[in-house]
Design a protein around this nucleic acid. Sequence first.
RNA 1: GGCGACGUAGCCAAGUGGCAAGGCAUGGGUCUGCAAAACCCUGAUCGUCGGUUCAAAUCCGAUCGUCGCCUCCA
Length: 471
Amino acid sequence: MSIQIYNTLTRKKEPFETLEPNKVKMYVCGPTVYNKAHIGHAMSALVFDIIRRYLEYRGYTVEFAMNFTDVDDKIIRRANEMNVDPFDLAEGYIQDFEKNMAELNILPATVNPRASHEIDQIIEMVEGLIEKGYAYPLEGDVYFRVRKDPDYGKLSGRNLDDMLSGVRKEADDRKEDPMDFALWKAAKPGEPAWESPWGPGRPGWHIECSAMNLHHFGASIDIHGGGNDLIFPHHENEIAQSESLTGKQFARYWVHNGMLQLRGEKMSKSLGNIISIDEFLTQHSADAFRYLVLNSAYRNPVLFNEEVLLQAEKALDRIRFALRPANDEAAGAAAETLDNLATQITRSKDGFINTMDDDFNSAGALAHVFELVRVINHSRDEGATTEELLPAQDLLRELTTVFGLRLEDDSSAGKAQADPFVQLLVDLRLELRSLKNWALADQVRDQLTALGVILEDSKEGTTWHWGKNNG
RNA sequence: GGCGACGUAGCCAAGUGGCAAGGCAUGGGUCUGCAAAACCCUGAUCGUCGGUUCAAAUCCGAUCGUCGCCUCCA
């Protein structure tokens, strides 16, 4: 059974077949860089990072492109408000975005094209569309002629006549059809502009993605991704532009992620309920966010709130524990236990792959990961040695790496200076316990807990670690 | 108004025809001086109504509810 991918274009799952053997050309719509990236951007980036990692795990070479829209009305407006150069503004946010992506453990794209670096290709494409009759210049603008494209609406499942009823009455009546959209916009005074056959101006939003794809990948790509809020009009228009010009199918599979739900509604600028990635990361771990994304179907809305994040942190702790070595005095587990462990390795790996093959069902695959976790922990309790646990733990590390989870025991980061003193107190308490001075021993433990240090007593002694978001 | 998605245990959430995964929480137990962690055990007939079928959470119809797109949006 091959990988199955749900294709928005056909509204069903289809077997994944690449244009070239073992190679995937994948393009995902990136952000318009006029502000700090928010957790909705993170959600989309995580979804496609997971898909990309999984395709690589399955042996594909993935060429992954994600653009930056760095020429746009909103960027220009904000730059004017702040009295800075629009390109400097965009550059700053691009760097912020790349920093955020690294923090979230999102693999860097093969290429990050920017609209402002693709102007020649954009102009060339617009000229081509005019030549073929799919576009027309109008007072320095250029518009796409939607009525000329019989397929227009095939991605979003709309037809032009239905859409017309929804069009605002004050629609620009210079255009041939209200649904015609801008490929090129004439420059207004004070705006950044490039010379073109139609006078100074700048590209419309939709054309950049088409031009970048053509430039970097050619006429056809395997996977085109983005948030499902981009299906219309953005992706619909991309298809119209690209396929009208080349006559070839633009993207074989259209993959769309669901929206992040904050307090029951979509997070967006217009609603003003934005949480930036920076803000998020001061409170929570990147792994916790990734877990939320993994734990649900990428096409559905993902619920985001404090309770769910707490549940995620605890679930991750469970996986982290399974990666710990065996007890020091472990004498080796019984043959039956080791057989079960060996069986589970095969079962978990097969289950993981079969489930992920089904349209990247990460939530289902996560169940297979947790089964492995349970059996590892059980085996440890049954006396398995570190060597005996290792193959299963290697697989656990392998699968969670495909998911992009770091699972670092890094909660002590930045606190290392205090470690010797903590150890001193822990050792002291051990003495108190051997003297059966429980009251004082408990006092030490309670006060360390209050400082964010978690103690765990066992037969071999006491281990300790820093708790989450504490100390 | 048009197009689309979703509604599964206290919470999050897989599962699209054959006895309902997983995580968090809860309760009980093992271990522990106590605790923590870990381990074992513990719960739902799938919004509602009707239909198809030997068999439905899963297909069809209706109904209620939630959400998204149709304007910039990941």
